[in-house]
Computed example of a mutant assay.
Amino acid sequence: MKLNERSLAFYATCDSPADSAGFLYKRGERHAAYHRRWFVLKGNMLFYFEERESREPVGVIVLEGCTVELCDSRGEFAFAIRFGGAKSRTYVLAAESHAAMEAWVKALSRASFDYMRLVVRELEQQLARVQWGSNAERAPEREPERALQREPERALEQELEQALEQEPEREPEEAPEREPERRAPRENGCAVWNIVPGTDSLPRGAVPRWASGCEAEAGPRQPPVPPRCQASLGVPAGNAVEVSAFSRLHERYGTEVAWLRRQWLERRQGQQP
């Protein structure tokens, strides 16, 4: 905010209430003589006029970074406004009575923004203490209310406990026995088709290989019938030829193995001394 002489003059003479107002004696800067002036305190600004009816102030003192203290002077009831700094000016004022001096010293000491900040902080702390004390006092009063609120819940819990105690214990139901699953018999680790009693001879649409001489185009393929079950199932003689050829091949292989083993033993005996 930019201030100028016109805005300061308007603020000094406007109808806003003043924190303090009255006549004081102000000592001159160059001369030690005192001049009677009309002072008006608004916020942190101290305006002084030549007369009470003057329309514009003669000067203004901004009360920031200063101290207000009593001083020894020729005039009675004198006090000074001192600012920090080597070249800062010190304003010496004097009141007409001791009561007026005390009132002005208090008002000027409380006019700075720093003082107002301290006051606000102190008031906030007091408010916090008052609120904490009121909450502590209300805590015992709220306990009966909470107890009344919990009574319906406790009554419901008691009813549930009584109902559970009166309810008879139920015996565990026995599980129904399951029928054992029927599994197809196995031959040489493989399941054999169509030898389980009560089943069809072949699935629908399936044609046996031994009946047609080749694999059927439709239906699932039938695994080969083991030799042990061929007689019981009535396998045709065509498969018997294959079995006899396999047995002859097995006998020939066994004969060759026996002949080779015999030669190996004779050779080993001939090498020994």
Rank of each mutant, 00 (worst) to 15 (best):
R186T: 15
R74D: 14
G270Q: 12
A32E: 14
R186G: 06
E171M: 03
R228V: 15
A147H: 01
E167T: 13
V119K: 05
A80R: 08
H250Q: 13
E251R: 08
E251D: 13
R221G: 04
S54Q: 05
P180Y: 02
E143R: 13
T199K: 00
R55Y: 05
P227T: 13
R183F: 05
T90N: 10
F77S: 03
M101Y: 01
P152I: 11
Y91C: 10
V243H: 02
E256Y: 07
Q263K: 03
P57W: 08
W104Y: 10
P57N: 08
C66S: 11
R27P: 03
A33Y: 04
L202E: 09
S212N: 07
L118A: 06
A99Q: 14
E256K: 03
G133S: 12
R27T: 14
E50M: 01
D200P: 00
R30N: 10
E266Q: 10
S244Y: 05
K106N: 12
A147W: 02
E217Y: 02
E266F: 05
K2L: 11
M116E: 08
G28N: 09
Y115F: 13
A128R: 09
W104S: 07
C214L: 07
V60D: 01
C190M: 14
C214N: 04
A80L: 10
P57F: 11
R37T: 01
R170S: 02
H250T: 12
R37E: 02
E256T: 08
L260N: 07
H98E: 15
V243F: 01
E179H: 04
P224V: 11
R182G: 06
R221M: 05
R82Q: 13
E161K: 04
A136N: 06
E167A: 11
E137W: 02
R262I: 09
S212M: 09
H35R: 10
F83Y: 13
S244T: 12
G254L: 11
N188D: 15
E215N: 11
A100T: 13
V68Y: 02
Y48P: 03
G205T: 15
A191I: 14
F77H: 10
R121F: 03
V58F: 02
Q222E: 10
V120A: 15
Y48F: 14
A163K: 12
A136Q: 12
V207C: 01
A155V: 13
E29L: 15
E157Y: 00
L24K: 00
G234W: 06
E153R: 02
W38H: 07
A9L: 02
C66Q: 04
E69A: 15
P236L: 08
A99K: 09
E143V: 15
V120G: 07
R204N: 11
L41Y: 02
R178Y: 04
Q272K: 01
D200M: 03
E165F: 04
F77G: 01
Y115E: 15
A240C: 09
E171Q: 07
A216M: 04
A111M: 04
R55C: 09
C14N: 15
N44D: 15
A107V: 09
G189I: 07
G270T: 08
G43H: 06
L3C: 08
